[in-house]
Design a protein around this nucleic acid. Structure first.
Length: 759
DNA sequence: CCAGTACTTAGGTTG
DNA sequence: TAAGTACTGG
C-alpha cells in the first residue's frame, strides 16, 4: 500500500477511517480528490466488495475523473463494479429498475430544463393566465424547490403557509400549475431532473423491501461536495446509510456557491446531529497556491459569519503579490488583460493552457474574446450552449426519445411537424385539448381518434396516421437494430437528414448543423462499438447515457493548448498557474441582486474565495471604472472584495497611459442621433393604399386555377423558380417552389402573387 | 407559409 | 446592446 506514503498525516487518517460516520472538511487545494480516491482504494485493499460501495458526485466531470483515477490504482475491472456517478445518474438507474412500483414505464424519458419550461409555458397558456405574472422560469424554479423539499402537489395545495405566500405574491394558481405539470409528466412517462431525486425518495419511503435491498447493497457510502447537496439528496443518503452508517461526506463550506439552486449548508450541521459519534477530519494544508494567494483568500473569507472554523495554510513559496489593475472601460480591460497575459507567457515560457480568465457573468467574455483574437492568442470559452442543446441535435434526439417512449409529449410536440408535414398548430392544440379531456397522452389520442375524438380534419388525420405509423415502426425496431442502425434509419426516414441537406446551400451555419448531426451519429457508432463485442446496445441504452450528459466538451481531443475563459462557477474544482480575475466592480461582483441579505452577500464572498484559490503561481485582479450595460455606459466602483483583502498581499498598478482619450473616443459617441426624424410619415400610408388599390383592381390573382407542377414562375422577392409540389385547397392552397438562389420554399398562393412564365 | 418588425427583457448553472 | 418572441402583412 505504497500510495499511503503519498499522503500527509491528516489525509492518511481520513483515508484509513473507513468505518462509521465521517466528515472531511477539505480546504481549497488540500488534496480532496486524492483522499476520496485513495480511500476507495484502501477499502478495496481491506477486502471490501466493490459492489458494496456507492460514491456520489455532483458533476459528470468529477465522476469521470474519479473513475479514471481509481481504475489507475486498482484496475478497471474492480473500479467498474463500484456504483459511482452523479446523484442523478445513479438513481435514475435504480428508478428504471423499479419504475413500475411508482407508476412509470421503465423506459421513461428525462425532460431537460428546456422541456420542462416549454411544458409549463403551455400549461400557463391553457389556464389562460398572464405569462408576465406567471413567468415560466419563475414557475419552474418554484416547482423545483417544492420537489427538492419533497413537497408533493397535493401537499403544496393543502399547505396553508405556501398558499398564503402564493396569494401574497399574486400567483395563487401556482399549486394547480404544479399539479397539472406533475400529472402531464406522468402521463408522458417522463421525469425531470428533480423528479429523479424526488421519486427516489418516494421509492425508498413507500417500499421498505426496496430500501432494505439498497441498504444492504450500499454498505459504504461516499459523498463528494457535500456542501452542495439539497434536502432531497440529503435524505436519500441518510436513508441508505441508516443500516450501516458507514458514510463519509467530503466538502468545504467555504466553497458552497450553489445555494441559489437549493443547496443547503445546513446539511453539514445536520450531519452532526444525525450521527453524534461522527469523526471530523480537516484538511488544511494547501498544496496548490503560493502563500500570498492563500493568505489573500483567507483574509477575505474570514469576513463571513457562517463558517466552520479552520485554518488553511501552505508550505509553498511566498510568490508574487496579487496585482490589481484598473482600466477605464470594459473594452480596455479586455485589451489590457490580453496584453498582460501575452507578456507573462513570453516572460515565463509557459503554455497557453496555463492561463485562465475568470468572470462573474458570461456576457463579460466578449471584450476578452475580441482582444485575444486580435493578438492571435488561442482561447476557448467554456459554458454556453452545449452540444446536446443545439436545435438540430434536440430535434433528432426527440425522434429517438419517441422511438423509446412514444408518449413523451415534449418530444412529440417538437417533431410532429418537423420536418413540415402539414400538421398545423390548431390541430396540435386540439389534440392537446382532447388529451386533457380524456386524461391520456397525446400519443393515445393520435393513435385512436375513435376512442378519443379530437377536432382534426380528415386530411390532417391521414398525415398524422403516416407519422404515427413511422414512429411505431421505429419503436418496433428498438431491440432488433442496434443503436447506430436505428439512429441512422430514423435520421433518414424522419426526413431530418434531407431537411438539413437541402439547407446546406444556405450558408456556413447550416453546414455546421449538418455536421453536428453527423457527429452525433458517429458518436452513437462509437457507443455501439465500445464495450464487449457481443453486447447488444440499443438506442434506448444510448438515450439513457445521453439524457444526463450536458458536458459539451466530450470528445474534443483537438488542440488543448488554449487560454480558458469561464465563469467562476464553472471553474470550481479546477486550477491554473495564472489566473486573471476580471470585472471586480460593485454591482457586478458582488452582483447587485445579492446585496439585499447577508447570506446572499456571503455566497458572493465564497465565490470570490473560490476564484482566487484557483490560482497556483499568480493571480491578477482587474476592474473597469465604466462599462457598457445594456447599451449604456455606466460608471462603476471597484469591488468591496478588493478592499477586504489585506493590503500587504496586494500590489496596485497605476492606470494605463493614453486611456483618457479612449474614453472620449469610445464612450460619448452614441448620443445625438435622430432628432430630424420626427416627420409624421405621410408617405407610408399613401404607399399602402396605393398597393391596396392595385390588389383589388387585379380582380383575381393569377395562377389560382391554372398553376401546375413543373411550371416556371416568378416571385417578386425570390425571382424565378420552378413549381415542384401543390397541396391544399381554396385559401390554403400552397405551392412548393424551388428558387435557384433561395432554395426550396412553400408559399400560400393566396399571397405569393406568382407570375407564370411558361408551362 | 414566409419574412420583416415591434416589443420585451436582461444572474450565476449540474443533472 | 442583443436575443428572443409575438404579431402582421403579403
Amino acid at each position: 500500500m505504497s500510495y499511503l506514503d503519498e499522503l500527509n498525516e491528516s489525509q492518511r487518517v481520513a483515508v484509513e477511517n473507513i468505518y462509521g460516520p465521517t466528515m472531511v472538511i477539505a480546504g481549497a487545494g488540500s488534496g480532496k480528490t486524492r483522499v476520496l480516491t485513495y480511500r476507495i482504494a484502501f477499502m478495496l485493499d481491506q477486502g471490501i466488495d466493490p459492489f458494496n460501495i456507492l460514491a456520489l458526485t455532483f458533476t459528470n466531470k468529477a465522476a469521470r475523473e474519479m473513475t479514471e483515477r481509481i481504475s489507475n490504482i486498482v484496475g478497471g475491472q474492480e473500479a467498474k463494479n463500484i456504483s459511482m456517478g452523479t446523484f442523478h445518474s445513479v438513481f435514475s438507474k435504480i428508478l428504471r429498475f423499479n419504475a413500475d412500483r411508482i407508476g412509470f414505464p421503465n423506459n421513461f424519458t428525462i425532460y431537460d430544463t428546456q422541456d420542462s419550461k416549454s411544458l409549463i409555458k403551455d400549461i400557463i397558456k391553457e389556464f389562460n393566465l398572464d405569462d408576465k405574472t406567471y413567468k415560466p422560469s419563475g414557475v419552474f424554479s418554484r416547482i423545483s424547490s417544492a420537489k427538492n423539499s419533497l413537497i408533493s402537489p397535493e401537499a403544496y395545495l393543502n399547505n396553508d403557509e405556501i398558499q398564503l405566500e402564493d396569494k401574497q405574491s399574486r400567483r395563487p394558481e401556482l399549486g394547480r400549475i404544479y399539479q397539472t405539470y406533475a400529472n402531464r409528466c406522468q402521463k408522458s412517462g417522463a421525469m425531470d431532473f428533480d423528479d429523479l431525486l424526488y421519486f427516489t425518495n418516494i421509492l425508498l419511503r413507500d417500499f421498505p423491501e426496496v430500501l432494505h435491498y439498497y441498504q444492504q447493497k450500499f454498505q459504504y457510502i461516499l459523498v463528494d461536495e457535500y456542501q452542495d447537496t439539497n434536502y432531497a439528496q440529503y435524505l436519500i443518503v441518510k436513508k441508505l446509510a441508516a443500516a450501516f452508517e458507514n458514510i463519509c461526506v467530503v466538502g468545504d463550506d467555504a466553497q458552497s456557491i450553489y445555494s441559489f439552486r437549493g443547496a443547503n449548508i445546513q446539511n453539514i450541521l445536520n450531519f452532526r446531529q444525525d450521527y453524534p459519534d461522527f469523526k471530523l477530519f480537516k484538511l488544511e494544508q494547501n498544496y496548490r497556491s503560493t502563500k500570498n494567494i492563500v493568505e489573500a483568500a483567507n483574509s477575505v473569507i474570514k469576513k463571513n459569519k457562517d463558517q466552520i472554523n479552520k485554518k488553511v495554510w501552505t508550505d509553498n513559496i511566498i510568490g508574487e503579490k496579487l496585482k490589481v489593475i484598473r482600466t477605464l472601460t470594459d473594452n480596455e480591460e479586455g485589451k489590457t488583460i490580453a496584453g498582460r497575459l501575452f507578456e507573462t507567457k513570453q516572460g515565463v515560457g509557459s503554455n497557453w493552457s496555463d492561463f485562465a480568465i475568470l468572470y462573474r457573468t458570461n456576457k463579460q467574455s466578449r471584450a476578452f474574446e475580441e482582444a485575444l483574437r486580435k493578438l492571435n492568442i488561442p482561447y476557448k470559452i467554456y459554458g454556453g450552449l452545449s452540444f446536446y442543446q443545439r436545435k438540430e441535435i434536440k430535434d433528432l434526439l426527440a425522434y429517438f426519445r419517441l422511438a423509446a417512449n412514444p408518449r413523451d409529449e415534449e418530444a412529440l410536440k417538437r417533431v410532429i411537424n418537423y420536418p413540415k408535414r402539414a400538421i398545423g398548430k390548431t390541430s396540435i392544440e386540439n389534440i392537446i385539448i382532447a388529451a386533457n379531456r380524456y386524461n391520456v397522452s397525446m400519443w393515445d389520442v393520435i393513435t385512436d381518434f375513435n376512442q378519443y375524438p379530437a377536432e382534426v380534419n380528415s386530411g390532417t388525420k391521414s398525415k398524422i396516421y403516416e407519422f404515427t405509423t413511422m414512429i411505431s415502426s421505429f419503436n418496433a425496431q428498438l431491440n432488433k437494430l442496434n443503436a447506430y442502425e436505428l439512429a441512422d434509419t430514423i435520421a433518414q426516414a424522419s426526413g431530418v437528414m434531407r431537411e438539413l441537406m437541402d439547407e446546406k446551400e444556405k450558408g456556413p451555419e447550416e453546414v455546421e448543423r449538418y455536421q453536428n448531426i453527423e457527429e452525433l451519429l458517429s458518436g452513437i457508432q462509437e457507443f455501439v462499438k465500445s464495450g464487449d463485442s457481443d453486447e447488444f446496445k440499443s438506442l434506448s441504452d444510448f438515450m439513457i447515457e445521453v439524457a444526463l450528459l450536458t458536458d459539451a466538451d466530450e470528445g474534443q481531443t483537438e488542440d488543448r493548448n488554449h487560454v480558458s475563459l469561464m465563469t467562476i462557477h464553472a471553474s470550481k474544482g479546477l486550477e491554473f498557474p495564472y489566473v486573471f480575475l476580471v470585472g471586480l466592480e460593485e454591482n457586478l461582483f458582488p452582483s447587485q441582486m445579492s446585496l439585499n441579505t447577508r447570506t446572499e452577500l456571503e455566497e458572493e464572498r465564497r465565490l470570490f474565495y473560490v476564484a482566487v484559490t484557483r490560482a497556483m503561481n499568480a493571480c491578477t485582479l482587474s476592474y473597469a471604472s465604466s462599462r457598457f450595460v445594456w447599451g449604456q455606459l455606466i460608471s462603476s466602483e471597484p469591488s468591496r472584495f478588493i478592499d477586504e483583502i489585506e493590503p500587504e498581499y496586494l500590489h496596485f498598478e497605476t492606470p494605463q497611459r493614453g486611456a483618457g482619450r479612449s474614453l472620449m473616443g469610445g464612450g460619448f459617441e452614441r448620443q445625438h442621433t435622430g432628432g430630424l426624424n420626427k416627420n409624421p410619415g405621410l408617405s407610408q400610408p399613401n404607399l399602402k393604399s396605393l398597393k391596396d388599390i392595385q390588389g383589388n383592381g387585379k380582380s383575381e390573382s393569377p395562377g389560382e386555377q391554372d398553376i401546375k407542377v413543373g411550371y416556371n414562375v416568378e416571385h417578386d422577392r425570390f425571382g424565378k423558380g420552378k413549381v415542384t409540389k401543390l397541396e391544399g385547397n381554396g385559401a390554403d392552397r400552397k405551392a412548393t417552389i424551388f428558387f435557384p438562389h433561395h432554395g426550396s420554399k412553400t408559399l400560400l398562393l393566396r399571397f405569393a402573387n406568382l407570375i407564370i412564365l411558361e408551362e
